[in-house]
Design a protein around this nucleic acid. Structure first.
Lengths: 212, 212
DNA sequence: GACAGGTTAGGACAAGCGACCTAATGATAA
DNA sequence: TTATCATTAGGTCGCTTGTCCTAACCTGTC
């Protein structure tokens, strides 16, 4: 397991020291995280975030020098959250097949948000790529997190060299399902596709159980 | 086959008459189509389009009253182009299996653009949804065009009631592959997934050949 | 030449944006 | 109390945006 980015656990502001994160800063990141997801990064203004947090606009400059820094903090948090979630499943001692099934299950767990706004990872990456925004690297890091984690689970299942291709495959399937669930928000489609993905997963598992 | 939108084949400008489309208007739509795809709708300004076309900014108002009208025209053209492409395959007398294979082949044919900017349909829809933009309906119409066409091809293959689910499935797979090809622009992934989709298609075809 | 109608260029306009500054506030420690 | 320093509110700045207006430009026909 590789942490794709170093984590800024607090405010540094020139002192070179790591301090406990400010409560307001965390509120800003939380609000920005939500608005970047629901409205997109560019369409979200400082005023929007300030209104949601309930603070003054001008106050932002104290916590973040630029809008890009807020984006970095949001991506950082998203990576940390997903990282914890994924590692939690492994630490629980769940077998790799169940871990991957949990990943697929995210689509159902978050089905309402996904049907409204698509996948937080895919839509953010897509937007930043089009904007030629440096944050694209961080957004790709989110993909990397899932890709590497899935690869390791498939390796644990004994898939060997195929593991990375399988990881990308299931990642792509999830992205596609999220996109179409967003365009056609009827619940049946999502459940149907998740069931198919789980069946596919079990077929892969069986195939490698029989071989070894 | 249903045309999801009526086509405005020219400029109306109050007269209620349909006139031959102006050359400048077509240039504007072409440039906007490209920029909306490469940079996104909101991030593309009138100045950007004007520069690409080589005309004055202020001139836009003569051809389009608002930016939204340009978007409508772009979506209209995209629908018309895809409609012609899809109908062309059917009119050529290609069997349904080959028609669907052609659809999957779009991913390879446009692989360079897709790896750079993602899928023109999916990314546009995703952006407009987040913006709560009325053009979302038109963008969904693009999905509808493919969905209905694919459904009819699967029906022609004898898939009956499953046809629509199969159409959505292959649509979702395409979307996911495009998204990940955008994030990881190495050629192998795209070719691998396309091969898998074609294998899946043949499996579906065989299944329904044996049954009947 | 004179005229008319479709077309174009260039600029004006208010609104909103990110970035930035400064004075006021609040809590803590001497 | 006083001093200190982190934090906040409110406002300004230059810039870009979409929208809109008007004068000039073609390119025909009379």
């Amino acid at each position: 397991m590789i942490m794709p980015r170093t984590f800024d656990l607090g405010i540094i502001r020139g002192t070179g020291m790591t301090v406990a994160p400010s409560a307001t800063r965390e509120k800003i990141v939380t609000a920005a995280d939500r608005l970047f997801y629901e409205r997109g990064f560019e369409a979200t203004s400082f005023a929007d975030v300030a209104e949601l947090v309930g603070i003054s606009r001008g106050n932002f400059y104290y916590h973040f020098k630029t809008k890009d820094q807020i984006l970095d903090a949001v991506i950082e948090r998203r990576i940390r959250d997903r990282h914890e979630m994924l590692c939690g499943w492994v630490d629980d001692g769940q077998p790799p097949r169940d871990c991957i099934a949990n990943f697929i299950g995210i689509l159902l767990k978050n089905n309402r948000k996904i049907r409204s706004f698509g996948c937080p990872v895919g839509t953010l990456f897509s937007e930043l790529t089009k904007l030629d925004h440096p944050g694209e690297t961080g957004a790709r890091g989110l993909f990397d997190l899932f890709r590497v984690w899935l690869r390791h689970r498939f390796q644990d299942m004994g898939c060997g060299k195929e593991a990375d291709a399988l990881a990308l495959h299931i990642l792509a399937r999830s992205q596609g399902v999220a996109t179409l669930a967003n365009a056609y928000p009827d619940e049946d489609f999502l459940e149907r596709e998740v069931a198919q993905m789980l069946a596919w997963l079990d077929a892969v598992a069986d195939q490698h159980n029989n071989h070894h």
